[in-house]
Amino acid sequence: MKAWMVGTGVAVMVAALVACESNATNQDAAKPAGGVTPADVQVGEGKFAANCAACHGVRGVGTKQGPPLVHKIYEPNHHADMAFHRAAENGVRAHHWEFGNMPKIEGVTPADVEQIIRYVRWLQREAGIY
Rank of each mutant, 00 (worst) to 15 (best):
H78R: 15
A83D: 06
V61D: 02
T25Q: 14
I116Q: 03
P103N: 11
P103A: 13
W4G: 11
Q115T: 00
T37M: 07
P38R: 12
I129H: 08
D40M: 07
A33V: 08
A15F: 14
V58P: 05
A83G: 04
P76A: 10
I117V: 15
H85L: 12
I116W: 02
A94E: 15
A30I: 05
A53H: 02
I105V: 15
L17K: 07
A49G: 03
G44F: 03
R93P: 04
M102L: 03
A50P: 03
I129D: 05
D112N: 09
I117T: 06
D81I: 01
A80H: 10
Y130E: 12
A49F: 00
P32T: 04
R118N: 02
R121G: 05
N101P: 09
V70Q: 06
G57V: 07
R121A: 05
Q65N: 13
G91Q: 06
E106C: 01
D112S: 07
E98A: 15
F99G: 05
V36E: 07
W122S: 05
K2R: 13
Y119F: 13
Q42E: 08
D28P: 00
A39Y: 10
K31A: 14
V10W: 12
L17T: 10
T63S: 07
M1F: 09
M102A: 01
P67F: 12
V6G: 06
A80E: 13
P38M: 11
P76Q: 05
G9F: 00
P67Y: 11
A24I: 01
A87G: 08
K64E: 14
G100P: 14
N26P: 00
A111E: 12
T37H: 01
A50M: 06
V120N: 06
A127S: 14
Q65A: 15
V113H: 04
E21P: 01
A30Q: 10
H71F: 06
C20D: 03
G107K: 10
A24S: 01
A54K: 08
I117D: 04
V14W: 11
K2H: 10
G91M: 08
I129Y: 07
D81S: 14
I73M: 06
C20T: 07
V58L: 10
Q42L: 09
R125Y: 04
G128E: 07
G62L: 09
R125H: 08
H71S: 03
V120P: 07
Y119E: 02
G57P: 08
H85S: 08
I116H: 02
K64V: 15
T37F: 07
K2S: 10
A50N: 06
A80W: 06
K72V: 02
K64Q: 13
V6Q: 08
Y130P: 14
T37S: 10
P38C: 11
G9W: 01
Y74N: 03
E75D: 12
V6M: 14
R118Q: 02
F84E: 00
D28C: 00
H96M: 09
L17D: 07
Q115R: 01
R121V: 04
